[in-house]
């Protein structure tokens, strides 16, 4: 099953990936990262389709996609 890997410590919390995920499976993390902001995480139990739109729009290159 496709999946994404998020580099949470590089994430700046702009949430652009959240806005483009067609499944709505990228959500805010509950805990802060080393920057002191809430990064994103993949919703537990969500089924990624591997469309890679999140990786395409991430301005900080924090997301890698496996399919």
């Amino acid at each position: 099953m496709p999946e994404i890997a998020i580099n949470k410590d590089k994430c700046k919390g702009c949430f652009l990936c959240v806005s483009v995920c067609p499944q709505g499976f990228i959500i805010a993390e509950d805990e802060l990262n080393i920057r002191g902001i809430k990064p994103v995480k993949f919703k537990p139990g969500g089924k990624c389709t591997g469309c890679a739109m999140c990786a395409l729009i991430c301005p900080d290159c924090c997301i890698e996609v496996y399919r």
Partner: peptide, 27 residues
């Protein structure tokens, strides 16, 4: 499973100084 979207080799794996959501990082 294949990596279909990977960190580009020519881009250093460092955090940029740009603000969240800035277009420079994308460009």
């Amino acid at each position: 499973m294949d990596k279909i979207y990977a960190h580009p080799k020519s881009l250093r794996d460092v955090s940029t100084h740009y603000c969240p959501g800035c277009g420079h990082g994308l460009a």
